[in-house]
């Protein structure tokens, strides 16, 4: 059996060191590559779309690297994991930066946390209420994961929400549709529970 390849998309949005090390840690037998090359991404067995920062820069960088079609294509054809901004970018629209259209791969909106009483960004460890999905294998309900974000996602069709977290209001912490999974939190920074999620992704066939 040849080693699987997991491609982490490098489009200039944030540090990919941690996610690549975490994947190597949980899937040492797989080939983890960090790349901006469309062909490498499309040839990989699995794809990870990370992202840290603001949505405007994120979308600009995806376009500048001419990766929009590649990401859409990968998201339709192989196990695909979006992380943080990589979740928000999959949705239809974000209110951040005066309003930015996303990739619209899954119908949903991104809004800003608004509360007098809450510290923003939502930074730290919060619990995730789970709904059956292979990505949750060996992860108990209500485990803590590490979040850092000021905008939160809401998917139009709640069937696609497989993880829910509450901070002022309930929001989509994890979404899943067909071969796509995306997390608002950072599994690569979420200790054992996060590593287990990455292990599950590395073992997932997308069904």
């Amino acid at each position: 059996m040849t080693a699987n390849t997991i491609a982490i998309i490098d489009y200039g949005m944030g540090n990919l060191h941690s996610i690549s090390k975490a994947l190597q840690h949980v899937a040492p037998e797989q080939n983890i590559i960090v790349t901006a090359q469309s062909q490498q991404i499309l040839n990989a067995d699995k794809v990870v779309l990370p992202g840290v920062g603001a949505i405007k820069d994120c979308m600009l960088e995806i376009k500048r690297h001419e990766l929009q079609q590649t990401i859409i294509q990968a998201s339709q054809s192989k196990p695909f994991l979006g992380i943080c901004l990589g979740l928000q970018a999959l949705l239809s629209h974000s209110d951040e930066n005066q309003g930015i259209d996303g990739l619209n791969i899954i119908a949903g909106q991104v809004h800003q946390f608004q509360s007098q009483h809450l510290k923003i960004p939502h930074m730290g460890w919060n619990q995730v209420k789970t709904k059956a999905h292979p990505i949750w294998e060996n992860i108990a309900d209500n485990r803590y994961f590490y979040f850092v974000h000021s905008y939160y996602a809401q998917v139009d069709n709640l069937d696609y929400q497989i993880g829910e977290t509450e901070y002022g209001q309930k929001f989509c912490a994890v979404l899943a549709k067909d071969n796509i999974v995306a997390t608002q939190f950072h599994p690569e920074k979420s200790h054992e529970a996060g590593l287990q999620l990455l292990r599950n992704f590395a073992n997932w066939n997308g069904e």
């Binding site: 060191h17 941690s18 090390k21 975490a22 840690h25 590490y146 850092v148 950072h186 690569e188 920074k189 979420s190 200790h191 996060g194 590593l195």
Partner: peptide, 10 residues
């Protein structure tokens, strides 16, 4: 670099 390769928290 060394810590970040082995320690998976912020």
């Amino acid at each position: 670099e060394e810590v970040a390769s082995q320690v998976f928290i912020p």
